[in-house]
């Protein structure tokens, strides 16, 4: 059974957005959209999350934060860039301190368009991420199996 389809837990981080997409992400949780139908919980803790939703583009100061959060998430994990700023920098692309979209910092799997992205599109993005999770888990498993004969590969040889 594809469990990741059934129980994707999300975490949301605001890279450098205008709040528009953020409140729409939150709106997804509320009665009209109710993503808990799909088993989605907003955990708020990277260590529990499967899907990282990032709104807004990445600037100088938020870059290490985004990296840290991504690293603290256990595999398999998927990154969804919500809104046009997160996808490419959007209207703020010309700002002086931009690093660009989220993909400038961490690998992004799903791009959700919109300014602000509507709850429906955000949900669509998350649902598209679900299958990716399972695929990534399987990939990792096979990769580990392939690596298995050389367990000392992590240890630097003198």
């Amino acid at each position: 059974m594809n469990l990741f389809r059934k129980s994707p837990w999300i975490i949301h981080y605001d890279g450098a957005s205008c709040n528009g997409c953020d409140i729409e992400v939150l709106a997804c949780l509320t009665p009209r959209y109710d993503v808990e139908r799909l088993g989605i919980i907003n955990t708020g803790n990277p260590k529990h999350a499967d899907i990282l939703l990032i709104t807004g583009y990445i600037n100088e100061q938020s870059q290490p934060v985004v990296r840290t959060i991504y690293e603290q998430m256990p595999d398999p994990k998927v990154v969804v860039a919500v809104g046009i700023c997160a996808s490419s920098g959007g209207i703020f692309r010309d700002c002086y301190n931009t690093k660009g979209g989220v993909d400038s910092t961490i690998p992004v799997d799903i791009y959700v368009p919109g300014c602000a992205a509507r709850p429906e599109s955000i949900m669509d993005g998350v649902v598209q991420a679900l299958d990716l999770l399972e695929r990534k888990r399987k990939e990792k498993k096979t990769r580990r199996r392939a690596i298995a004969p050389t367990p000392t590969s992590e240890v630097p040889t003198p």
Binding site: G15, C18, I23, G56, I91, C95, A116
Partner: peptide
Amino acid sequence: FIHRGLEKLVEKKDFTEFTFIAERICG
């Protein structure tokens, strides 16, 4: 963490276009 420096964008967007930027000071 979310400083975008959009005030500086007045140098790149003309004053009518800048309305869209102003609307995105905050969503």
